[in-house]
Design a protein around this nucleic acid. Structure first.
Lengths: 345, 345
DNA sequence: GATAAAAATGTAAAGGTTTACATGAACGAT
DNA sequence: ATCGTTCATGTAAACCTTTACATTTTTATC
């Protein structure tokens, strides 16, 4: 109850041992004798001691924190992943620092601080469109901080990745539409330079090719994962004469935007057109109509990314550079709901 | 490129001054002469020096971090607030640590670490239902870390609060329904022991009383802010004979759940019943139908909470206890969209 | 040009922990 | 009894900054 919080010296005095022994008893209990160990624990209880993180970090040359780079915190897709990451990380005793990369275009300077100011021991990047030079860790790969990608990534920089099989997922979505009898199938794609965009489009086209069909280029609506993009795609669809009877959207948000816009023009889903989404956000199951979509195990992705990062952090920096970066691919499922049905005509 | 990152001694050597001068040049530029200041800056550039946060924190007896306690990270309502907080805080040089309080019931032990392990300098609490004994900062109020509530709070512990006028907001929502001609108005409420629940219900009832109307107790459906609760409320509504013609939901999620369930039973919104939400989530504008709702300035709330926390952190702990805790109340607006209309009969 | 005051800089301690190395105790083997 | 191990503990340095205090340099005043 005096000025300063109790330090390891107070505990040492109370237990009648040296500070070194207290430190050992706490972080390496098996190397001290049972009697002293217990004496130390009692002293810790008595004094209410808790380790001073800054001092430990300084001495150990680490920070006890990891950062997560999120493209857009407001996006519910990412917040769920964050939740998984936070769970695993705080269990492992790490603090989770979040940084929204959206406004980062402007301040190129703050970002690299995460590495260079040795603020963090590791980094999970959820943003594949981040300028890759920013991600370069003082030239050398993962020199200071370990790093893993999750969901999105960039090919220009080799790092472990936790993701889903986007191609297979898209194929499943399209196959579902084929099974319902659709042959005229369109696609609302992701942003042009995103890694996910290409593989999802390929997956969709692949499924069509497998049964001898083709996706008309007119039916590929450019998007960017946002609700607004979905609405714009719907406007294109409404204005066209040669239309698909089903559309596979590369995100649930776009699917909702698409359906919402159609609804305002008295086009009914799934009666007039079937729509499949991607992500399976919480709200998707309760949309009107409930969305048929690809379920992404978002919490699991977050947890897997966190666990992989923990492993990478254990490795010495040299070691991390060697060998190919591991890649975890998590399974996805199609969730059938009410936004898809056989074609009307 | 040698082993260790450059330290302040390297800079001192390069600039031909003492480490003390380097430190001053960096954190108090105005107290060193212009010539040395420039020499130091050049040396910093040359060596690539960045301050070691752990060492600084140890010496200064602070952590440079604040924690945000979020009830549910997966909830899009909170992620947006978080985004505002993160913006202000990282601008001020603080790291933002997030903790999801949902799974916290189990591990009473990890939580208090945020204070006692002096891991953070401040704390923003978005969870009004957190066990208040956990929030007690080693007995004394804000002894170690400054603390503010945002959105939700608990009355059992006096702290600064950033919030909206929930009563007025609810009154606005109900007034809108009255203006449309509704007289039979119901309410889907929040969880029983939440501070927001009471004030929103009061606000709604107040607006009715003002025009000589009353809300039938049968029309107050118990909820908990989730989509599922909205759906359950709809089931009750569907099963009843004496029904309101309009319902004010205490969250957008519940409003969507409500509408979704009605839709599955061929009840049309707003033709058969009007629905007002609360929060104005991104998706609400694109729901089917687009939701009439109370707009909460979520990013602004986050920013205001962060700024208030920064102020509180500047105050010495003794000072913080004195006087009443400040309270910031932000304005809200009703957003008219398509889920409300005059009653049909 | 001497003196006082102000400004700039240097010296060294302190902040709390961990850990390499040194020391000492206990124990078994000869 | 002696020696060599092993195990447990203690000593003290190191991690890197910041800052109170001391010292030196500059500026102002007469």
């Amino acid at each position: 109850m005096n000025g300063r919080p109790p330090s390891i010296r107070d505990v040492a005095k109370a237990a009648g041992v040296s500070t070194a022994t207290v430190s050992r008893a706490l972080s390496n209990p098996e190397v001290v004798s049972e009697t002293t160990r217990e004496a130390v624990f009692r002293a810790v209880d008595a004094t209410g001691y808790t380790v001073n993180i800054s001092a430990r970090n300084l001495r150990r040359q680490e920070t006890g924190a990891v950062a997560v780079l999120v493209p857009n915190l407001a996006n519910p897709f990412f917040s769920r992943i964050l939740s998984g990451i936070a769970g695993v990380m705080s269990e492992a005793g790490y603090n989770v620092l979040i940084a929204d990369t959206t406004p980062m275009d402007l301040d190129d300077h703050r970002f690299p601080e995460y590495f260079s100011h040795n603020r963090v021991d590791g980094l999970i990047v959820l943003d594949g469109m981040l300028r890759h030079d920013l991600l370069m860790n003082r030239g050398s790969p993962e020199a200071r901080a370990a790093m893993v990608f999750a969901c999105e990534w960039t090919d220009r920089i080799q790092r472990p990745i936790v993701t889903i099989d986007n191609q297979e997922a898209s194929a499943k979505a399209v196959q579902h539409l084929l099974d319902l009898g659709h042959t005229r199938i369109g696609h609302v794609s992701g942003p042009r330079d995103n890694v996910l965009t290409a593989s999802r489009l390929e997956g969709a086209q692949g499924a069509l090719h497998a049964v001898g069909l083709k996706m008309s280029p007119n039916w590929i609506y450019p998007g960017d994962f946002t609700v607004g993009a979905g609405a714009r795609a719907a406007q294109i669809w409404l204005a066209a004469t040669d239309r698909p009877t089903a559309v596979f959207c590369s995100s649930d948000e776009m699917a909702m935007g698409f359906i919402g816009e159609l609804d305002r023009h008295k086009v009914r889903v799934p009666q007039d057109i079937s729509v499949v989404g991607f992500d399976d956000l919480e709200i998707s199951a309760h949309f009107v109509p409930p969305l048929t979509t690809i379920h992404q195990p978002r919490v699991t992705i977050g947890r897997a990314a966190a666990r992989m990062l923990l492993e990478r952090m254990k490795l010495p920096p040299m070691e991390r550079a060697r060998g190919p970066a591991p890649r975890v691919i998590l399974p996805v499922e199609l969730v059938r709901r009410l936004s898809t049905a056989p074609p009307s005509t």
